[in-house]
Design a protein around this nucleic acid. Structure first.
Lengths: 197, 197
DNA sequence: TTAAATTCTTATCATTTGACAAGTATTATT
DNA sequence: AATAATACTTGTCAAATGATAAGAATTTAA
């Protein structure tokens, strides 16, 4: 087994989320294959159908959409290890509106819908894991929406800085600004005004 | 069978989302029980664990959290027919942070986790339905977040007015304002400035 | 039906954030 | 190392939204 084929990080992700036997995880990840992308590569492009589900083993990514003015609106920032998916596109076979792009060099594992379906219908613990992954993703998204509704940019920035300090080391500020729903100018001002914290 | 026990709306909801046999739906909804709530009743209170999953058959609801200043921040507005759930609380048995309250008189169907689990692990089409429900809910939430990030309040208001005109007939404007992430004062101003549309 | 409570609107002023432009710093390319 | 490209900061002014208060309209309760 080469170093590239070491599924330790992938398999551990299952264990970290849900109590599950080693053998079951190995069965689930049997049909996952590894690959790498350099920084600033596109993993999944807008207006294409996502035929794979991706696990980000190492690196940083972002997803974005283009608004009417063709500005990139960052919709998510991903820190490994995590699954990176456009659920709607993958499960409903519809074109995605978002583009998923690497920020740093990244390593991935991928598998196709057929494998996911086999696992989903034959391994009850994978079903539970899948649902839990949805529940957690939904919950995180809901929390972020609540913050966007109820807190001003400075509060959101300070919270992100505290909860995900790592991304400030690896992700350009203009991407973080867009993720926070503000301009890079505004983020710069907020950072100046809060630098004493 | 009394009128109250007519599962037409509930059962049709399954058919509308996913191709599924009549008998399978009847099997799934066998253990759902009906109940009613008057307007301004609490369906699920903050800091309690959601032991049921709810289907809103008729009426309007909202969910909200309380921020630091004890202001209600509306997180969602529900129009029947739809499922109304705190996924995290229901599946992870954790206390919810949100309160779910009726806006009008409402009729519901409910069932418990044990029934959901039985269905989830024994009926493959229910698994597909459940996942699809998650996918659609996640997608709607993501769209709403993107709007919050990238569009100004007036644009979000006009879009809501176009996409869900019914709620403006049944839901107080101050609730809609909070849902849009603005004050009722601000919504009132926007409505004055856009009333010519 | 009247009184009270709630919702909605409007006005004024303050705060937050955006748009634009210029300049500096950093990173990538040759 | 030099050049170009990109990222970041700062300043100025404008636009969007919030906070507060007062009054009008509507709904609810007695």
């Amino acid at each position: 087994m080469t170093h590239q084929e070491n599924k330790l990080v992938l398999n551990n992700f299952f264990h970290s989320l849900f109590p599950i036997e080693k053998e079951t995880v190995e069965k689930i990840t049997k049909n996952f294959t590894p690959f790498k992308l350099e920084k600033n590569s596109i993993l999944l492009d807008k207006e294409t159908v996502s035929t794979k589900t991706y696990f980000l083993e190492k690196g940083y990514m972002a997803s974005f959409i283009l608004n009417e003015d063709n500005d990139e609106i960052i919709t998510n920032i991903f820190t490994a290890p995590c699954f990176v998916n456009d659920f709607l596109s993958f499960f409903k076979k519809e074109p995605t509106k978002e583009t998923f792009q690497t920020i740093t060099d990244c390593t991935f594992w991928e598998t196709d819908l057929e494998t996911v379906q086999d696992n989903f219908h034959s391994i009850s613990q994978f079903r539970e894991f899948s649902r839990l992954l949805f529940v957690i993703n939904y919950h995180n998204l809901n929390d972020r929406l609540i913050e966007m509704i109820s807190q001003k940019a400075e509060t959101r920035y300070l919270k992100l800085l505290k909860q995900r300090p790592d991304i400030f080391k690896h992700v350009p500020l203009k991407i973080i600004a867009s993720y926070l729903g503000i301009t890079d100018t505004s983020l710069s001002r907020i950072r100046r005004d809060t630098s004493h914290f």
